[in-house]
């Protein structure tokens, strides 16, 4: 152990001792391994961003901010950006609309599932249902997509028609053309189903840690079970619920194949969620990449960068919200 002091003498009393520690060889090796592992993940993330930026750069240079605000998708000659016109506004807005709708549709089921599993059933049944829930989270999205396309869509189109019939006076439920297949609404139903397991899993975990003494207090005050849950568990678990939902939002924003099967991509900025026209950045890339010429590939890369940035921002916002609300709850 070496003994070191802070060099600069202070005015108030003797110099403060610096904290020093001589690490031994095995500690150094372990530190190197852990650091390398962590750095690797960051480096890959940076490389992905760099790759997208590099490939999409020309597009941003050519169209500037217009790439985000226009909704035309015309590859022109197909060889160069000269004469082509690309913009992802409709796709970007569509991604957000579908993901937000999925969240809204999933929310009551997430709360219900979490509370039911934690507070309304016995230990044995809970163990079974929790593992089923985790299995649901592991179902590949192509399965959800196929089911949504083949099974759900015929019914859901009917529901959409009914909603349109009675609530068509609300602008978002209006349709210009009476075709209710492959609408943002149907995509959101499928995505909502997909995020219920993953969001419930996080939420249930936090609900299960609600302080028992406060739950007892609520019961002792003449609270019913619902009363105790409302007074203690829901406020306590708010951060977990938000965290779980935002995790789901992250998944919904980037979901590709389930949306590809259930949404009709149209390059037109519209806010009619029941109509058979919507947008989605991830599905756009998947649907176009196979037959894209050199110029369109550049545009798709730029679209990828936009999606990448959007999901990063959402996750960043999520962690801020979670840390803020969990402070309040403690």
């Amino acid at each position: 152990m070496s003994i070191a002091t802070v060099d600069k003498p202070t005015d108030d009393g003797p110099p403060r001792r610096a904290i020093t520690n001589q690490r031994n060889a095995s500690d150094k090796r372990f530190r190197a391994v852990v650091t390398a592992g962590a750095m690797f993940a960051f480096v890959v993330l940076a490389l992905i961003a760099g790759f997208l930026l590099f490939r999409g750069f020309e597009v941003f240079k050519e169209f500037g901010f217009g790439f985000l605000t226009s909704s035309t998708w015309d590859s022109g000659t197909g060889e160069s950006l000269e004469g082509a016109s690309f913009g992802v506004a409709a796709m970007l807005v569509g991604s957000v609309i579908v993901a937000l709708m999925a969240m809204i549709l999933a929310l009551p089921f997430v709360i219900g599932t979490s509370l039911f599993l934690e507070y309304y059933i016995g230990k044995k049944l809970r163990a079974v249902l929790v593992s089923i829930l985790d299995l649901m989270a592991a179902i590949p999205s192509i399965i959800y997509g196929l089911w949504g396309y083949l099974v759900l869509m015929p019914y859901a189109a009917g529901w959409a028609e009914t909603i349109n019939k009675y609530f068509g006076w609300i602008p978002i439920f209006k349709v210009d053309v009476e075709n209710f297949d492959a609408s943002p609404f149907i995509s959101a139903l499928v995505l909502g189903l997909m995020i219920i397991p993953i969001a419930s899993s996080v939420t249930r975990e936090v609900y299960s840690r609600a302080p028992q003494d406060q739950i007892s207090a609520a019961y002792a005050l003449g609270g019913s079970r619902w009363g105790a849950l409302k007074a203690v568990v829901l406020p306590f678990g708010r951060s977990g619920l938000i965290g779980g939902m935002l995790l789901g939002l992250g998944r919904a924003l980037g979901e590709t194949v389930a949306v590809l099967l259930t949404l009709n991509l149209v390059f037109e900025l519209k806010f009619q969620v029941l109509a058979s026209a919507g947008g989605n950045v991830a599905s756009l890339i998947a649907s176009r990449i196979g037959e894209a010429g050199p110029s369109e590939i550049k545009a798709l890369m730029a679209a990828g960068l936009v999606l990448f940035t959007l999901t990063l921002l959402v996750n960043f916002g999520a962690s801020i919200i979670v840390s803020r609300t969990s402070k309040v709850a403690q």
Partner: peptide
């Protein structure tokens, strides 16, 4: 009932804590 460890509801204000039983019931 009053418990061994003080257990006010942390998400509520002092006033809300006192009146929590009324709300619950």
């Amino acid at each position: 009932m009053v418990f061994q460890k003080p257990n006010p509801f942390p998400s509520m204000t002092i006033a809300e804590n006192v009146l929590a039983g009324l709300k619950l019931a």
